[in-house]
Design a binder for these strands. Sequence first.
DNA 1: TTTTATTTTGCCGTTTTATGCAATTTTTAT
DNA 2: ATAAAAATTGCATAAAACGGCAAAATAAAA
Lengths: 249, 249
Amino acid sequence: MLKEERQQTILRVVELHNRILLTDIAETLDVSIDTIRRDVKELDADNKLKKVHGGAISLGFTTNSVKNKNIYKLEQKTIIAEKAAALLKDGSVIFVDGGTTCNELARLIPNNLDLTCFTHSIPVAMELLTKSNVTVILIGGQVSKESQISIGANAIHNLSEIKVDYSFIGTGYVDSYYGLTEFDWDIVQVKKAIIKCSKKTVLLSISEKLNSQHRYKSCDINAINTMITELEPENELLNSFRNHDIRIL
Amino acid sequence: MLKEERQQTILRVVELHNRILLTDIAETLDVSIDTIRRDVKELDADNKLKKVHGGAISLGFTTNSVKNKNIYKLEQKTIIAEKAAALLKDGSVIFVDGGTTCNELARLIPNNLDLTCFTHSIPVAMELLTKSNVTVILIGGQVSKESQISIGANAIHNLSEIKVDYSFIGTGYVDSYYGLTEFDWDIVQVKKAIIKCSKKTVLLSISEKLNSQHRYKSCDINAINTMITELEPENELLNSFRNHDIRIL
DNA sequence: TTTTATTTTGCCGTTTTATGCAATTTTTAT
DNA sequence: ATAAAAATTGCATAAAACGGCAAAATAAAA
């Protein structure tokens, strides 16, 4: 095998998998580890990839796409947030809930989009402040340490005085029969208020939460207009939600 | 798993969750806690995140501005914040303004102090959330992009319904004759509301701002009960403030 | 084709890096 | 004040990187 084609192969593999181990490549291509090491060194010098201890990673890898394990459900949440962000239009007035998925949504909102965003989540607010065309309006109230959102009577009262086009909410648990449920009573009260102040409610939920329930109920499943998961809409896990009037993305 | 991709993963998790526990990461990625600790240490050294006891937090979430250019002024602000923190007593109900000095105050509040803190500043709120014995109450309203605080009619109205023992405020400019002044009209309205809802008002100001003024006035110098600067109380720069009824620290 | 020069490759010993373990100190919470 | 959790330190092991060298492969020249 020629040196040139070997290097091309290495590059292809790196691009495909984002990462490789030198030992793996050496075994696959049946050359010594030293040779591979030299190859990778050259490719690195040519800025074709990044050499690291024990292997190499693709240059684009730094930005995104950890295709490996679903560590912390990163991939799912990003997929969901992307789908949700696609719903946004110039001039929309929306509410963004707290939670990691909604955080991701806030992060993925395009910078050039004109929006008015209400939120009771501190991290979301922080994220939205970086978007130059987004007007951020904070819902005040007592702040929950765990979830980092305003809760309590004051927050609920503030919510009662607004009306938004869309609200994007998360939930602890969701089930087609039991609806949206939570572990925490206070959170439920706020969710109710959010849903009440929204013309349309969009639920962002990773598939893991589907068909699970807990003690306190935020709303019936019918209160949700659109449900977004990381799954393909045809996935059978979503079957039980189909006979409700819900758009599934 | 390559060290590099492990670190990338850690970074992504931190960015999404804002805060993580080292033990969680270690378990998820299936390496020893020592390794994770070393990774986080490196990432911190590279200014990719902030390492804290037991975990790590994202830079966007750290309000005390590691990225602050002006180290010197930061030190001044720390001195001021330390003096201010010394005033706090168990059970106090206080308001904390926005701005870097007040951020620093929030950061320096002892963890064991029982406090109820109102604030309209997102960075301050974030900082306060890390204090287990502090109840944080957020003042809602439209959020100013530059100063990251709630302003406008709603914020002012919310302030009108509370009364706190102490408010700790910053200002753009301060002068013994012209009082506290600002460049921004909206900010002034909020400052007025803050002062109105406080039994005692404590001004935190670096000496650089002394004897300067601008277009819009927040209040007379007499409205301030205590003024804290990084200077020694005897400093002659403070002379013009002495014939007012102000405690100078 | 044969010879010569150049490049490539594999091997080896040394040095560096990464990682986990255990003992100790520091920090935090109760 | 005490107990628990986390950080630090030093150390041992294993894997990986490095540099030199000689054999092998390739290219160039006679």
